[in-house]
Write a protein that binds this DNA or RNA. Structure first.
Lengths: 234, 234
DNA sequence: GTATGTGAAACCGTTCACAGCA
DNA sequence: TGCTGTGAACGGTTTCACATAC
């Protein structure tokens, strides 16, 4: 069966909201209620889940704990993934330090940088190694995913080294499109792109306003029927 | 005319690649060449541009400098947007410090935090103010976009304060869906979501491999005809 | 009665294919 | 001739609507 790529991102969102519901003590939830929480259509949730199995009870809904677990299994959130980061500048260090306080699905096991004065430093409990060590360290420590947090100019080189060392996935924070063999999966996190989308929206909204003034006697419509904002899916 | 939302993100990508071409001294580019650089279909570029006007010359292509300028104008990259950040922990400070080295379309004019010991510190040249100051400072300094870099628990509160203070756009790094009035535009940067998509892909790829072994006498296909990876479009 | 699971329909975005123009 | 601009065809995703099951 063909699974729309965006459905995977939605599963992550469902998982998050299910955890929140569980924390609140909610035991059963319908696709309608979960859809409200996630900002999507109820049928979409049922379709997305249907790609992977049947998790609900007709006439009842979904058991929160159970569904949460199922989705976590689908997304492999039930293991601890081993990551390394290349580049411990502002962003790289922030990621390392952030991870140390998160009890999550991943852990950093190595960090690399090119600048000699950064080598040997400990950031977020991880010692920084020279980039030449990538090949050995990645292999020896079983790193599965490499995080690229270097400047755009060095990003492709970092990717090449990570691929050579055997990582199977790359999370790329540099604003360039990496070239990698198809067997290596790449996800990009690009806040510059998001910012530029914001610029456009702000500009478009103020240059062509479509909110009309009310005329006397005009009735206030109870629900403006705003379509849900789905920008979180990127 | 209805413009597909992702088209805006692609325009950003086109702009980046046009700048690279310009730096290389390329003066004219066809949709085909630009498409190769951007990893999209040539017709897509022409369609995306057609939403905003006619920028090319038939039989020739697009003048790099000119098109670059046009797109920058469409995205309002030709002004300096005024940003503030709420939360100067690992991520918030990294953003402030990063911005100070970028000669770009934005500048941070204020930073806020709740923790008393962070107040008054200077990060990336910006002094940190208490969150209670948001209302005044945002109004007085003309902040247009607020960046949320606080913990998920405080993110909605930060958003409320920013909205009250009059920002028109929010760049949200917290992994929750913010509730805001429709007039305020929100873009989310959520590396956790990206990471979880990677988990899924890595798991799916190894649990059901589709690369078959070659049989004797089998012909090597010259181009495997891989569809372009569009994950950069968030 | 109520909510899931799922074909069918509607919708939206992408790509094709070619007319139009330098 | 070569490449843009664009209607039409295509393919994928979302939503509807209802049969199904508790």
């Amino acid at each position: 069966m063909k699974i729309p790529p965006i459905a995977i991102t939605r599963l992550s969102v469902y998982a998050r909201n299910l955890e929140l519901l569980d924390q609140k003590g909610v035991e059963v939830v319908s696709s309608g209620r979960l859809a409200d929480a996630c900002g999507v259509n109820p049928a979409q949730i049922r379709k997305d889940l249907a790609y992977f199995g049947q998790f609900g009870v007709r006439g009842v809904g979904y058991y929160v704990k159970e569904l949460s677990l199922e989705i976590r299994r689908i997304l492999s959130l039930d293991k601890t993934w081993r990551l390394c980061v290349v580049g411990v500048g502002n962003l790289g260090s922030a990621l390392l330090r952030h991870a140390q306080f998160i009890d999550g699905s991943y852990t950093f096991v190595a960090a690399f940088d090119r600048k000699p004065k950064r080598i040997g430093a400990r950031i977020g409990g991880i010692e920084v190694s020279p980039i030449e060590a990538i090949l050995d360290v990645v292999k020896n420590t079983g790193v599965e995913i490499g995080v690229i947090a270097v400047k755009p100019k060095s990003a492709q080189e970092a990717a090449d080294m990570l691929v050579k060392a055997g990582v199977r996935g790359i999370l790329n924070f540099a604003p360039i499109q990496l070239q990698c063999p198809a067997k290596v999966f790449i996800e990009n996190v690009d806040f510059g792109l998001k910012l530029e989308v914001l610029y456009y929206k702000l500009t478009a909204a103020s240059s062509r306003p479509h909110r009309r003034h009310m005329k006397a006697g005009q009735v206030i419509v109870p629900k403006p029927k705003e379509p849900p904002n789905k920008s979180f899916l990127v």
